[in-house]
Structures are given as structure tokens and as C-alpha cells.
Simulated assay, not measured.
Amino acid sequence: MPLRTIDLCAGIGGIRRGFELAGAYKNVLSAEIDPYACKTYECLYGENPYNDITSKEFKFIVKRIEYDVLLAGFPCQTFSRAGLQEGFDDDDKGVIFDHISKIIEITRPKAIFLENVDNLVRHDHGKTFDIIIRRLEYDLNYKVIGVTRNLLGEIEFSAKSFIRNSKNFGVPQNRPRTYIIAFDRQRYKKRVDMLENRLPDGNDLCLYKDLNDLLEFKKAPPHFYMASGYLETLEKHKARNRSKGNGFGYVVVNKKEHPIANTILATGGSGKERNLVYDPQEGIAGMKLPSKKTVLNSKGIRVMTPREWGKLQGFIGYAFLDDNHHDNFHFPKCLSDFQKYKQFGNSVTIPVIETMARYMTDCFKILGELPNT
């Protein structure tokens, strides 16, 4: 019988899909409040995940659901370098972890899987991450992978040991993220000490040789090409920063040997500008589009398409392939490019999640929850 998961702060279901691909898990409840993400989730899984984990109603529901593993990619804006870094002081997002820990307390899942930005471990000089780990270890009595206890029972850990990068898991994207896996010490007692106390460093998957192998050359519609005036503005901005000794500015990522993409971001913006690609097409240079103030640039520079972002995250070309190699990933009709970029940028890299799920499967075998075959 598969282990049952609940998918909190679900987005478009990347964490859920990674666990499903690992083969030993079945989702029984989901929660997401973004209406556009809910529509995509329903397109992919046939169920509307709209639930608010901060509500009493949801806690009432989840308390009566039998499940084994809690999954959550809880909001990262308050902890990211791109955000305001308010952390637990942010009324809307920082307290989400408090609600997750409350759900853990009242339901006691066998295991927990959490994902967040890499800056989580450094936020507020490490105090935020220390609060999270202490709450899991001391208050909730879970064994967090990567944490040890000394002879006095005090926890010890290296924050860096919780960060893994998508580029080591089969996709050409430099995307460091924080991953937290924990098992219920109250249930498993000293057996948790038998688990390998280290997250997977990578996998043997190679979906693409490099970014150029992923890009869909000469297929992007004209509107993905940058207007000449905007490209000139970016060039001047980068030159000013360079003169000050800074490395900030746009990046054409596919001109170097064996290129990989920079982190794609939910906010769009610099996530696009630091992932520009060189892809000249006939008839593009000088074209005038109603949506752009100046003609299209003559240097063959464009942003990556939402489809290419989907490939970077493993949604397209991997996670939804059927036995006939037909790709069943699809967005709802009429979803804007803005929402597509936001949803992919806000999601997870599915091959990373699948690898973490397989690691947890091995742990469950050691703990006696799954047959050791």
C-alpha cells in the first residue's frame, strides 16, 4: 500500500509529482490559495486544491485525514534575497511555518518534507533556520536529517548541508534550494539513528547535456524577442554597474561552453533578464510589435519561453510523459504568459524532488514501513 501524502502550499503540484514518480506515494489532500495555480493544478491532477492551511476549517479536515507524509513548499518570498527578508515578522507569509508546525503537532505524520529558498539558512544570521530546526527537533520530536545531538542532547548541524542545487540533478539550471526531511522520533524511537544522516547530493539523470540542448531554437514567436530600446537600456545599466566594480545586469546565458541557466524566479523580472538567449531568426530584426515601444533588436536576443522554463523545472519533457512518450503536461486555456512564468518560477525542480522522495523511500524501508525489496 503506498504511503499517503498531503500537499501543502502546493503551487502547481511539483512536489506531489516528484513523490508520485518515486512510486511509493499517493496524494490524499492538497492545499493552495492562488487561484491561477489552482486552475493549473486541477488541469494536471483533476482536483481543485483550493484550501487555506491557516484556517480552522482546513485543520479540522486534515485532522480527520489518514496520511503518512506531509509535503510543503512553504512561501519563500519573505526569506529570499529578492524579497524584503522579513521572515517570521511578515504577517502574511512568515507565519505559514507556524501553521505547518501546528498541523504536524495535531496529526503527527510519519515524515515531513519541506522546501524553501537557499537563503532560508542564512536569513537573520541563521536565527530563522535555527528556530525551524529547533521546533522540529525539540518541540515536535522529529529526527531532522543532517542534525546530530551531542552527549548533552544539544543539536548540532551545518546549514550548508541542507542546500542542494538543481544543476546536480539532471537539469541545466543553477538553482540552490533548502530541503528539510524529518522522521517522527516519537514513533520510530532509536530506529531513526539507523538512517543515513545526509541528503542526496545529486542523481545520475541527464535530461539535457547543457542549456543549448534544452533551448528550442528558431521556434520562439517574435514577442519573446527584446525590443531594441529595452535591450539598449539593459546594456547601459550593465555598463554602469561594471564601471562601479559590480557584476549586476543582464546575462546572455547560452554563449559560453556547456551553459546552464541562472535561477528562474517567480517574480519574472531579473529571472528573465539573467537568462537571455542568443537565437537569431530571419525576419525578426526591426519588426514592430504593438506591445513594444521600439522595434525588435537586431542582435538575436530573446527571453526564454515559458515552455523552456517548464523544461528547466522538469515539468515539460519529463514528469508527465506517458508510456508512449507523449507529454501530458498542459496549462489551462487562456492562461497568460505572465502566470506561466510565475508558476514555473515559483515551483520546484521535479527531478530533485523525485530523488529526495526515493531517499525517503529507502529510509521508510529501514524503519519497517515498506518492504525491503
Rank of each mutant, 00 (worst) to 15 (best):
T263W: 05
I112F: 09
V277E: 05
L151P: 00
P172H: 08
M194E: 15
L199H: 07
K365W: 07
K288Y: 12
G14Q: 05
E47Y: 10
N203A: 13
L84N: 14
N324D: 12
F74C: 05
Y138E: 09
D91W: 07
T178N: 11
K102P: 00
Y318C: 05
T263Y: 02
E235L: 07
V251W: 01
G229Y: 06
R108F: 04
E42A: 08
E42Q: 13
F331L: 05
R302A: 06
I163Y: 12
I316M: 03
G94F: 03
Q186K: 13
G18S: 09
K293D: 11
G87M: 14
V352P: 01
S80E: 13
L21M: 12
K255F: 04
N119P: 07
H125A: 15
F113G: 12
T54Y: 01
L140E: 01
N297Y: 06
L8I: 01
S30C: 10
R240Y: 10
C9R: 01
F113Y: 15
Y142V: 08
R64I: 00
T148Q: 08
Y142G: 01
V277A: 04
V352E: 04
K238P: 08
Q339V: 05
I133R: 00
I65Q: 02
K311Q: 14
V252T: 09
D322V: 12
G126L: 11
R149P: 03
G229I: 06
Y67T: 02
R4S: 11
D362S: 15
V352H: 01
I15G: 00
Y359Q: 12
G13P: 00
A72H: 03
Y318I: 04
D204A: 10
N241T: 00
T373Q: 06
V253D: 02
Q281K: 05
T78Y: 08
R108G: 03
G73M: 03
L211K: 05
